[in-house]
Amino acid sequence: MLAPRFLRPESSDEAVELLRSFEGAAKVVAGSTAMTIMLRQGLIEPDALIYVGGLPGLREIHEEDSRLRVGALCTHREVELSAEVRAVLPILAYTFGTVANVRVRNAATVGGVVAEADYASDPPAVLLGLGADVITTSPSGERRRPLLSFYRSFYETELDFDELIVAIDVPIPPSGTYAVYEKYVSRASEDRPCVGVFASAQFYGGLFHNVRIAIGAASETPQHVPAIDRAGDESDLRASVIGEIAEAYAEQTDTLDDMRGSSWYRKEMIRVWVRRALERVREDAYASPSPSRSSSIPDEMPRRDQ
């Protein structure tokens, strides 16, 4: 195997021009945690790697108009520990903190995990459940797409070969929203999920509103079906309502087989973990009926003193 060329553009504009010139034969690399494995195992043979790790302006996190914009080059660890993310979207900080281990989180980027479309990654399902948009740039200009129509199939996205993700843009849930992410691992604690379930709902007037579920790691792409979630709106999320939602996701998800579980087993686990996730949302809401901002704060969030 010939080693691919390694190119270091100095700006996003230069990066996307390079991508265009290779017409799909180049790959973008930043944290390189996934790319290195694929290269070494011979799963991909690009002509060139376009290294964007040091590009300016892609590593900022900021809140504006009830949305949180996270730069594509922020590492998982930066999202996990960011005071800003923890204040407005603690579920996002928690989810990025469940990925792999400290070392991988110090390198792997937000843009990378979204673009790779690895079905077994945690963040895509949670971002989908939160209703995030992907913002990209290309020689044709900037584009915004909802994550809901971004994932096409197994490791495939709608990204054109000359497009570079510059940020994700996440709506901050309204006050009184409770969100959880349940990562179910079937083998070892350090493993990737067999099934990951995001659930959130807003609680006021004694009822739940705007119920949102997303399922990750169970099928080729993360699943979010608003028509199913609507069964929980204006309800008290009693057992029968939760059961109906869990059953519908188990039934409708086209689950896959791998070493973490068979297709049949994953359907069973979707049923179980959607129920548990919604039960947690309900319990959190009853336990503290008016959170100050959004989302219940997960237990044992890691911290950094300096």
Binding site: F6, R8, V29, S32, T33, M35, T36, I37, L49, Y51, G53, R77, V102, R103, V104, N106, A107
Partner: peptide, 20 residues
Amino acid sequence: TVLVDGEPQSGCLILAVSAE
């Protein structure tokens, strides 16, 4: 494990050319 700018990372996942 190596420390890159003080932070632990997996040396097996770092492309040497990106360590500049």
